[in-house]
Amino acid sequence: MHVDTARELKALLSRRLSEAPPSAVVASGAPGGWSGIALGLAPVAPGQVHLAVRLLAEADAALVLGALDDAARSEVDVRVIGPVRPQRSPTPEQLQRRTRPLVPGISVAHPTVTAGTLGGFVTRRDVDGLLVLSNNHVLAASDAASVGDPVLQPGPADGGTAADRVGTLTAFERFVATGNLVDAAVAALDEGVAADPAAYPGGALLGAVLPADEVDPDELVEKVGRTTGHTRGRITAVEVDGVGVQYGEGVVHTFDDQIEVEGLQGSFSEGGDSGSVIWRSSDRAPLGLLFAGSSTGGSAGGGVTFANPLATVLRVLGLAFVAQG
């Protein structure tokens, strides 16, 4: 319907809801006398919208739809969204603690590594259950570890000890001198270790990972990491070849086809954020695995962050991204 018509219908229904007796409200637990119904406009084409109806409970649909004729009902976008609460991002201090169930963004590491970030959860055809996704240099100690080694949460730098074991290193992509595509590793969860794959700031990410060739410059992105928490940035370059990363004294590996990100306010990432999954702000599509960065440069002087295309990580290690528990 035309946007002006929708606004008139929205105003009419709002008046009816405000005049409805309390006994007409079906939703239980709606606080402060709220009806449990929100109304808005959902664009569908230039100048055309649907009436957006957002419900605390499915049963409340009758309170709105019962007042509409058949023609109007075809122009309504009804969704049950449940309780609405402020979205609070975890602080770095919270992300560095021992956390159960495991959630994205928390401290994790091989016993010989300081600490990195648990980026998210994946599955692999030859392994039962969920696997933790992070970097080789976080879970596999930059090729120095062996499959079967323990993984700790939190990492040793945050007080993690053998008692904080949560999984077993299962697979990692070894480094070569030049032409690396990913810095990635996975660890299978130990029996009894619970995880919540959907617990990103703002809720679950999309299950579909953005293809590497669809990652575009200028996209707004986000991540949650052990050191800087929940940050926002912008993709400033894609398909970046020859990124030299220093993994130790005199040890440099170069990477091709990488994603560059700058923070919108200050640094997008700092040491310890390695392993974070990066997602697109517009639709929450996961697109990158953060693995390195600089502390200077960039348009705002806060350095730049580099990430492997997440689709490449999944392909190389034979993984599937898990968005929900």
Rank of each mutant, 00 (worst) to 15 (best):
Leu310Trp: 02
Gln265Met: 03
Val26Tyr: 11
Gly293Gln: 08
Glu262Gly: 13
Ala45Lys: 10
Thr123Pro: 09
Ala311Gln: 13
Arg174Phe: 02
Glu249Met: 02
Asp241Glu: 02
Val176Arg: 13
Gln87Ser: 11
Pro92Leu: 00
Gly105Glu: 01
Ser295Gln: 04
Phe172Arg: 09
Gly225Pro: 06
Thr296Phe: 03
Asp273Ala: 05
Arg73Val: 06
Gly119Cys: 09
Ala292Met: 10
Ala72Asp: 10
Glu249Arg: 09
Val49Phe: 11
Leu63Gly: 07
Asn308Lys: 03
Gly120Tyr: 06
Ser267Val: 01
Arg125Leu: 08
Pro92Arg: 11
Trp279Arg: 01
Asp190Ser: 14
Phe121Gly: 07
Pro46Thr: 07
Ile259Phe: 05
Arg280Asn: 13
Gly272Trp: 11
Thr305Val: 13
Thr5Gln: 14
Asp257Ala: 14
Leu220Asn: 14
Asp196Ala: 08
Val132Lys: 03
Glu262Asp: 12
Gly297Cys: 06
Ala195Trp: 04
Arg232Trp: 07
Pro104Trp: 01
Gly266Leu: 04
Phe255Trp: 06
Arg85Asn: 09
Ser294Trp: 05
Val127Leu: 11
Pro150Tyr: 08
Ala59Leu: 13
Gly271Ile: 01
Leu95Gln: 05
Ala145Val: 15
Val122Asp: 14
Ala24Gln: 12
Asp273Leu: 12
Pro104Asn: 00
Pro286Cys: 09
Val132Pro: 10
Ile81Thr: 13
Asp273Ile: 14
Tyr247Ser: 03
Gly293Cys: 03
Asp190Cys: 09
Val76Glu: 06
Val277Pro: 00
Ala72Ser: 13
Val322Ile: 12
Thr114Pro: 11
Glu191Ser: 08
Arg280Asp: 07
Leu17Tyr: 01
Gly233Asn: 10
Thr231Ile: 11
Ala140Gln: 05
Leu169Thr: 08
Gly105Asn: 04
Ala57Cys: 00
Ala188Gly: 15
Ser282Tyr: 05
Leu205Thr: 02
Phe255Pro: 03
Val277Cys: 04
Glu222Arg: 15
Leu264Val: 09
Ala24Glu: 10
Lys223Thr: 14
Gly36Glu: 00
Val80Asp: 03
Ala285Met: 12
Asp196Leu: 13
His253Thr: 04
Val64Asp: 10
Ala194Lys: 12
Ala177Val: 04
Gly242Pro: 08
Pro92Ala: 10
Gly233Val: 15
Ala292Trp: 02
Ser276Met: 00
Ala24Leu: 07
Pro43Gly: 10
Leu206Gly: 07
Gly233Ala: 13
Pro43Glu: 12
Asp149Gly: 08
Ala323Cys: 01
Val151Cys: 09
Glu262Val: 10
Asp218Met: 14
Leu290Gln: 14
Leu289Glu: 10
Ala307Lys: 08
Pro43Ile: 04
Gly293Asp: 03
Lys10Tyr: 01
Gln265Gly: 04
Leu181Ala: 15
Ala320Gln: 13
Glu173Ile: 11
Phe121His: 07
Asp190Trp: 11
Arg174Ser: 13
Gly119Ala: 10
